[in-house]
Design a protein around this nucleic acid. Structure first.
Length: 297
DNA sequence: AAAGCGCACAACCGCGATTTC
DNA sequence: TGAAATCGCGGTTGTGCGCTT
């Protein structure tokens, strides 16, 4: 079969040198179930590491590099699959804001998520929205939108989900945040969030600079350190993300026809994970549209 | 019904850093 | 101590699948 042939390449090591002792034929492309089982069984019996040797010993016609990637990104028992949760989305935005494309570093703070998965998430979801908004993803404009609009709204949704989960079903959820949220509301969910993210006690909290420089345990200390900005040294309270705007949303239209917000997918993956779809993105797009129009005028 | 398209994600590649011999 | 081997990261590509036209 032609495909099978194309999936076999002459053996080269990771420096792209042709194999010395023998002309090995390395397989490429999707892994088969048998290959997965061979890799899992071998690692279960011998442990991981020394990937080239491992690949040979396990009888896999794969490069060590390929085996390592398959194990770490897919087969490892700790790898968690499925939708990125709201909390994870928020974390990714915040951590990317701090470190940029340091995917492996960001992944340290999301247990069970791989750098590859986070990278894919960023490229497919976040960059897509920047593209739709005709906005450079590295621009201040886009970063501000993330920081002051999307992140607070993610916080709101997390809060809302938490409230819903603990509320008697027949009770009207009066605290459901809306876009007309006032500073008081911001204060409220700021307080709630500080509770939500408060793990342990203040005695275990690292100083404002330890988040990066002291390599605080990514998972265990996440909650308290998360809002400490290692760059500014400021304590990041979710309230910081929230800048109540006086935007009159009724006013917003697009006389310039710059953006087709209605055409944007209403069912963005960002609000999956059991979330009910709403106008999350539409409102955000409208807000950004307003900002962009202000810039134009 | 089928072709086209876009999305999501697995996998590959290049290269610098680190480890081993 | 230097060369070779290995590791790990970030960028990119390939592909299957579902949706739209």
């Amino acid at each position: 079969m032609a495909i099978e042939e194309s999936m076999v390449v002459k053996g080269r090591d990771n420096n792209n040198n042709i194999g010395s002792e023998e002309e090995m034929d390395f397989r490429r492309g999707p892994w088969t179930v048998d290959e997965d089982l061979s890799l899992i069984n071998f690692i279960a019996n011998h442990g991981e590491g020394r990937w080239n040797t491992l690949a040979r010993s396990a009888g896999l016609k794969r490069t060590g590099k390929s085996c390592r990637l398959r194990w770490l990104n897919y087969l490892h028992p700790d790898v968690r699959r499925g939708h990125i949760t709201l909390e994870e989305q928020l974390l990714i935005l915040e951590l990317h804001n701090q470190w940029g494309n340091r995917w492996s570093k960001i992944a340290q703070y999301l247990p069970g998520r791989t750098d590859n998965e986070i990278k894919n998430y960023w490229r497919t979801r976040v960059q897509k929205h920047a593209k739709h908004l005709k906005c450079d993803i590295n621009s201040k404009q886009f970063k501000d939108t993330m920081r002051y609009l999307w992140m607070p709204r993610l916080v709101e949704r997390i809060e809302s989900a938490a409230v819903t989960a603990t509320t008697v079903p027949t009770t009207v959820n009066k605290s459901s945040p809306t876009l007309s949220t006032t500073t008081n509301n911001a204060y409220t969910y700021s307080n709630n969030l500080s509770k939500k993210f408060e793990v342990g006690n203040s005695s275990t909290a690292a100083s404002s600079n330890t988040f990066e420089t002291n390599e605080v345990s990514p998972i265990s200390d996440l909650s308290t350190d998360y809002y400490n900005d290692p760059i500014s040294g400021n304590n990041h309270n979710p309230q910081d993300y929230y800048q109540p705007s006086e935007v009159n949303y009724d006013y917003i239209t697009s006389p310039y026809g710059l953006f087709d917000f209605q055409a944007m997918e209403p069912n963005t993956p960002w609000i999956q994970s059991g979330d009910t779809p709403d106008n999350f993105w539409n409102v955000d797009h409208q807000f950004l549209q307003q900002q962009l129009m202000n810039d134009i005028m």
